[in-house]
Simulated assay, not measured.
Amino acid sequence: MFEIYLSSYSKRIYRKRAKITTFVGMLCILLISSLLHFGFEFFGRIKWTGALFAVNESIWEHLKIGFFGGFIFYIIEYIIYGRRFENFVVGKSVALFLIPFLTAVFYFLYTAFFTENLFFDIMTLFLAIIIAQLVSLGITLSKKKIKKAPFVILIILLLILFPLLTYFPPKIPHLFYDFAHNRYGI
Score class of each variant (00 low, 15 high):
55 V>E: 02
67 F>Y: 07
119 F>G: 00
85 F>K: 09
92 K>I: 00
48 W>G: 01
137 L>V: 04
65 I>E: 06
25 G>W: 10
89 V>N: 00
121 D>Y: 05
93 S>I: 08
147 K>M: 04
137 L>N: 04
82 G>W: 01
104 A>D: 02
102 L>N: 02
149 A>I: 13
110 Y>N: 04
149 A>P: 02
128 A>N: 06
27 L>N: 07
58 S>Y: 07
32 I>R: 00
139 I>F: 11
118 L>S: 07
104 A>P: 02
96 L>K: 05
102 L>C: 07
166 T>G: 11
34 S>I: 02
58 S>F: 04
154 L>F: 09
163 P>K: 08
117 N>G: 08
84 R>M: 07
49 T>I: 14
40 F>M: 05
156 I>H: 06
117 N>T: 09
137 L>W: 02
73 F>I: 12
57 E>K: 08
65 I>F: 10
147 K>Y: 04
109 L>A: 11
68 F>P: 06
95 A>M: 03
78 Y>E: 08
158 L>R: 03
100 P>N: 13
51 A>M: 15
148 K>V: 10
67 F>S: 00
40 F>R: 00
129 I>F: 06
25 G>C: 13
125 L>F: 00
100 P>K: 08
136 S>R: 07
65 I>T: 15
52 L>C: 09
149 A>T: 13
61 E>A: 05
93 S>W: 04
146 I>Y: 00
104 A>Y: 12
45 R>S: 10
120 F>Q: 00
83 R>E: 13
50 G>E: 13
59 I>Q: 01
64 K>L: 13
28 C>Q: 06
27 L>R: 05
49 T>W: 04
76 I>P: 10
101 F>N: 06
69 G>T: 00
110 Y>C: 10
62 H>T: 13
102 L>P: 04
71 F>Q: 06
91 G>I: 02
72 I>P: 06
71 F>H: 09
42 F>C: 09
151 F>R: 00
152 V>T: 03
85 F>T: 05
164 L>Y: 14
99 I>P: 01
94 V>L: 15
139 I>M: 13
90 V>A: 12
133 Q>R: 12
111 T>S: 11
